[in-house]
């Protein structure tokens, strides 16, 4: 089963439907036990870094995360759900993140923000997530991003005025700055690739 952590308002239905295309059962929940035990946990994220972080902590997300990491259970962060895995976010003042990965999430250097729409991704070699969709475009909606590669991980990059981190892949924790659930066939393929590792 895939659990999608429900910790705030926003469009979670699309994520639910997109992950259901893998054939695995999907639940949208904030039940800590269900989130800890699920085969895969998805951390969606919309809104600002600070409010996302506050919502995550309010549903005891930090303990869920700790438990899953200890047991090497897969986690996939999406958009702000990726951003909060870093040390700090600078949106609306510095906010402490979950400190899984070093580095900060800061404003993208471009005249026109948000970075909204379809952009390509420089996928790393040997990526599991991007298998079969290495050359595809994915849908982004954000103004902030992590800029520094996570050492020991497979890092994907995207260009919008500057180069930023568009996906990170480790043995158990993966994350995408773009929305695979909104990225058409390519996004569904990436989701299937992730689900196949569960």
């Amino acid at each position: 089963m895939i659990a999608i952590l429900d910790y705030g308002s926003g469009n979670i239905r699309s994520a639910e439907r997109a992950f259901a295309t893998t054939g695995l059962p999907v639940v949208v929940t904030r039940n800590p036990k269900v989130c800890e035990d699920a085969l895969g946990l998805v951390i969606p994220g919309v809104g600002a870094f600070a409010s996302c972080m506050a919502g995550f902590l309010a549903v005891d997300g930090a303990s869920i995360l700790k438990s899953r990491i200890e047991k090497s259970r897969p986690i996939l962060g999406i958009c702000v759900g990726m951003q909060i895995l870093f040390h700090v976010g600078t949106e609306n003042g510095a906010t402490k993140g979950l400190e899984i990965w070093p580095g900060e999430v800061s404003l993208i250097d471009n005249e026109i923000l948000p970075h909204m729409g379809w952009n390509s991704v420089q996928a790393p070699a040997n990526s599991n997530l991007f298998r079969g969709v290495e050359a595809a475009d994915f849908y982004f909606v954000h103004s902030y991003a992590a800029k520094t590669a996570v050492s020991g991980a497979l890092n994907a990059f995207t260009e919008y005025g500057e180069t930023f981190l568009s996906a990170v892949e480790t043995s158990h924790i993966s994350a995408t700055q773009f929305h695979p659930e909104k990225s058409g066939a390519a996004g569904l393929k990436l989701i299937a690739n992730w689900a196949a590792t569960l």
Partner: peptide, 29 residues
């Protein structure tokens, strides 16, 4: 939203935060 996996925008008659909440929960982006 159950079958179209690209962004969906909805406009028309939106007058409050709760109108937006309803649409986002239904699957609008």
């Amino acid at each position: 939203a159950a079958q179209v996996f690209i962004p969906l925008t909805v406009g028309g008659g939106i007058r409050s935060v709760s109108d937006v909440d309803r649409l986002l929960r239904a699957g609008a982006d």
